[in-house]
Design a protein around this nucleic acid. Structure first.
Ligand SMILES: NC(=O)c1ccc[n+]([C@@H]2O[C@H](COP(=O)([O-])OP(=O)(O)OC[C@H]3O[C@@H](n4cnc5c(N)ncnc54)[C@H](O)[C@@H]3O)[C@@H](O)[C@H]2O)c1
Ligand SMILES: NC(=O)c1ccc[n+]([C@@H]2O[C@H](COP(=O)([O-])OP(=O)(O)OC[C@H]3O[C@@H](n4cnc5c(N)ncnc54)[C@H](O)[C@@H]3O)[C@@H](O)[C@H]2O)c1
Lengths: 214, 214
DNA sequence: ACCTTCTTGTGATTTTTTTCACAATAATTA
DNA sequence: TAATTATTGTGAAAAAAATCACAAGAAGGT
């Protein structure tokens, strides 16, 4: 698919714009915005161009309009409902995170296999894993977050898909198989750290070499 | 930089290989490995080619050799030491995660500004934020994980860099400025979810259209 | 020993993404 | 009102990434 990377940048722009807005800006130019998320200004303009967002020549972009427009594109003009499966370390941390709600994503419930962890009275209710299918169907949930051990992840995905979930964010460090009609995005924190390790080593070597040559 | 994406795939290969090994495989072909991480087989061979990894024509790759080789490239032949800053929801979840240790990454300590959360006796000690600089320097820590609120993140980064940290994984949803000699990798979970939302909406629309046309 | 089959390794090609570069035009100044 | 300046919007160019395609070589069969 074309322009896959643009989408993630649109979210970044939106983020930065909100911050810029609270800082008192009302309008913004492509180069400020570029700077805020660490790309160059024609990237910003190109991204906007692709999605039909336009500004004013010499006047930049109206922040409010821009955020509105971005939310529309990203499907965030309405609140998105999601569930988490697995009330362990990461699942519980995500459930407590207020950043999702701020961004129009509501976590409606957490599902957990261990009866000791079930707690329907919690702020975000922790329900029995067996009730997941029904809950998804009744509440028309489209988005699921997988925070169970590797060994249970595929099974959870299958149940989610069966119940009608269309998009999944998976924290288990394993590739899950999903049918074509369900999007899966993987977050693998070990991988992210390994990446940091590799590039910091590489950089260090490069800088040492530079120093020798100078 | 060239071949940036290859690196993250190398980590994925390593992951998959470990799994394949526990499943009893001793050798592996490029297409199995490709399948395991969801790319196509020439991508695997190309990645290996770039980093000088070679196998046997018609014999595939020896898994043990391959893992060893990948660890060398990724700088994972020795244990990597890291710290976490911020013992909140996400920081605490990361500290408890055993996946890092399994992958040769040791979390030596967590640093926290709130005295009530400090606990030097914990499995992974939670120390006072003020002791961070000294700890990093004494223990020659190169890798840091930022799990503090947005408002404190830049300051924490600056202190880390000052103390000698060369690579940072940042969970705060904000772009941090770092000097050239320090690598920063951002994990933004809201962004990841928004991406899922966007693409699942897109896919649904596309499928509806297909259905109408058919 | 020779043929067949399978799989690697990589140059060539294609596709995707990013960056350049500049015409178009709106705001500002003189 | 005309000249100047700043900024957008986008085709063209460059760079990066993924895929193709096939020669070369090993393993196994006959
Ligand atoms: N904790 C982290 O920081 C971290 C980091 C990266 C990746 N991960 C990954 O996230 C996943 C969860 O990690 P964790 O540390 O939270 O583990 P955890 O063991 O603390 O939590 C997993 C939870 O899932 C529950 N569970 C198991 N099977 C279930 C099922 N079928 N339905 C519902 N609930 C079920 C368990 O009872 C448990 O409460 C793992 O795959 C792990 O590799 C975790
Ligand atoms: N919890 C999540 O699931 C989640 C998800 C995505 C992103 N994040 C991001 O991760 C960061 C932490 O989130 P959280 O939910 O864990 O928040 P939290 O408030 O639970 O934890 C933050 C911790 O950092 C500590 N702290 C503050 N300033 C500090 C400093 N200068 N030095 C050391 N410690 C300091 C606080 O005392 C607190 O314990 C935030 O930036 C958040 O946006 C969290």
């Amino acid at each position: 698919m074309r322009n896959k990377n643009s989408i993630i940048r649109l979210s970044r722009y939106k983020n930065a714009l909100r911050r810029l807005k609270t800082m008192g800006f009302g309008r913004i130019f492509s180069d400020n915005l570029a700077d805020a998320i660490g790309v160059n200004s024609c990237q910003v303009r190109k991204d906007f161009s692709i999605f039909g967002i336009s500004g004013n020549k010499r006047g930049g972009y109206q922040i409010d309009e821009l955020i509105e427009h971005l939310n529309n594109i990203l499907g965030k003009n309405i609140i998105q409902h999601a569930i988490i499966v697995g009330a362990g370390n990461i699942g519980a941390a995500l459930a407590k995170y207020e950043g999702f709600e701020k961004d129009g994503i509501r976590i409606d419930a957490v599902f957990e296999a261990d009866p000791l962890k079930v707690n329907p009275r919690a702020d975000i209710p922790v329900l029995a894993a067996d009730d997941m299918i029904e809950f998804i169907q009744k509440n028309d949930i489209r988005i699921g977050i997988i925070a169970v051990p590797e060994s249970a992840a595929q099974q959870v995905l299958d149940l989610m898909v069966l119940s009608g979930v269309k998009g999944i964010l998976n924290f288990a460090p394993i590739r899950l198989r999903a049918p074509r009609e369900c999007v899966v995005n993987n977050v693998n924190l070990v991988l992210e750290l390994e990446n940091v390790i590799y590039f910091s080593n590489l950089l260090e070597k490069a800088l040492e070499k530079d120093a020798q040559e100078a």
